[in-house]
């Protein structure tokens, strides 16, 4: 989204559904693409019998990657999150970005966003900040 600074206002929010029902297969897909094959994300026997979790769970970086859909096309200058809660197969995730500031820096127009992704219970799974260049 090549937003224009004049069209972005502090307090604007954008909401994006990321998944209705996170599949175990998507978690495996992420393991393959990222190279992180930690059995906690795909190996039910290890995760339940050895590690004592109720079931496998998503890589934090998968949730961060899904949430990163907000700013494409090479406009992102910073993106950071804290992982606050595990994401499980079957979770429905919704991300929200809120405009915190529209500012100028070194002749560039920038938008600062607060980014939050919640699960179907409204619990926050990742929260953080992003900054993107916008058209003047």
């Amino acid at each position: 989204m090549a937003l224009q600074a004049s069209k972005v206002q502090v307090g604007d929010t954008y909401t994006q559904k990321l998944t209705e029902d996170l599949s175990r297969t998507q978690i495996v897909q992420y393991a393959g693409a990222s190279g992180d094959y930690n059995p906690l994300h795909s190996d039910e026997i290890f995760t339940t019998k050895v590690a004592n979790y109720p079931t496998v769970f998503a890589h934090g970086m998968l949730t961060m990657g899904m949430t990163g859909r907000f700013v494409g096309d090479g406009r992102l200058t910073a993106y950071g999150v804290r992982f606050t809660r595990q994401v499980w197969p079957g979770d429905a995730l919704t991300a929200t970005a809120k405009v915190d500031a529209v500012r100028e820096e070194d002749g560039q127009s920038l938008v600062d966003l607060s980014v939050t992704t919640v699960n179907q219970d409204g619990d926050v799974v990742v929260m953080g900040k992003a900054t993107a260049r916008v058209d003047p």
Partner: peptide, 8 residues
């Protein structure tokens, strides 16, 4: 493959 995996 990475973009598919993160659903983008």
């Amino acid at each position: 493959m990475f973009a598919r995996a993160v659903g983008d």
